[in-house]
């Protein structure tokens, strides 16, 4: 089918819009997507405080960035929260995906709906409802708002995404290998760890990568459940923007952008290689 696509598009006869119109619109949309990011990166190297007028190249703002211990602390918090939340969400999400794709049971539709409902619920509603819950239940129990509540919240909103990603992987899987293992006398647990898990690992890792990115980037939900003591990187960036535009934020944004790109490309490379093996 993809061969047909290539052939007929080469003829250049298919389409609703004239080709040059399509090309122009698409080029402008790409410009729209990338120009703001380019401007942001460009002015992170400016020699003066201005984020509007180019005065010369310097690395001053990157120096200031490294000199600010609160930024490094926020980065550490984000990393800690991201790693713990990703681990828990990936385990729970994978188990859920296994249950939903391999069992048919009463209540499965309800379970499915619940999983999707958790992904479409507006973030602000999730954030304030968790705030209300933590303040009413956790604080009387002596658990203050902080890293614990942030991790709990991040796991809650990322489980569904992991489930959806892992499930997509499971649905395309050949089960005869697992059946062979069981016929050869492997227990269900042995079959899972020796056969199923290695086969679905790319999906599990993709789900984990998505969970980590969502956790690391989350602002709205974290904003409500973080309390006063702990600040994640997005919370720190937000308070810096609120304080005023500064090239330090541009420098920090550039670092975060580059790190995210490395994570995605590194991650997808890893996944492609695993899948090829």
């Amino acid at each position: 089918m993809s061969a047909t696509t290539t052939k007929s598009s080469r003829k250049g006869t298919t389409g609703g819009l004239p080709d040059w119109g399509l090309l122009l619109v698409s080029a402008l949309v790409y410009l729209f997507l990338y120009a703001p990011i380019a401007v942001l990166i460009f002015f992170s190297f400016n020699s003066t405080r201005s984020t509007q007028v180019w005065t010369g190249f310097s690395l001053e703002w990157y120096g200031q960035l490294l000199a600010d211990p609160t930024i490094l602390q926020a980065f550490r918090t984000s990393l800690t929260v991201g790693v713990i939340a990703t681990f828990i969400a990936t385990v729970i999400g994978t188990l859920t995906a296994l249950a939903l794709s391999r069992h048919s049971f009463r209540g499965r539709t309800t379970a499915d709906t619940a999983i999707y409902a958790a992904t479409v619920m507006p973030e602000i509603v999730v954030g304030v409802s968790l705030l209300v819950f933590f303040v009413s239940v956790f604080i009387p129990m002596g658990v203050e708002l902080g890293i614990t509540t942030i991790v709990i919240a991040h796991v809650a909103f990322t489980i569904s995404f992991v489930t959806i990603v892992v499930r997509a992987r499971l649905s395309g899987m050949d089960r005869s290998v697992e059946e062979a293992a069981q016929d050869l006398g492997a227990s269900p647990v042995q079959t899972f760890f020796r056969v199923t898990l290695p086969l679905i690992l790319p999906g599990v890792m993709a789900g984990g990568l998505l969970a980590f990115t969502l956790s690391f980037d989350d602002f709205v939900i974290t904003f409500f459940v973080s309390g006063v003591g702990s600040s994640t990187l997005p919370l720190k960036i937000y308070s810096m923007i609120k304080f005023g535009v500064s090239p330090v934020i541009n420098a920090l944004s550039t670092v975060v952008l580059v790190a995210t790109l490395f994570l995605i490309f590194g991650g997808s490379r890893l996944l492609v290689r695993k899948e090829g093996a």
């Binding site: 990011i37 980037d217 923007i241 535009v245 952008l257």
Partner: peptide, 15 residues
């Protein structure tokens, strides 16, 4: 851009 922080993208427009 979809994978990069929403906050950073909003900040780009502030600038």
């Amino acid at each position: 851009p979809f994978w990069t922080s929403l906050l950073i993208r909003a900040y780009a427009w502030v600038v």
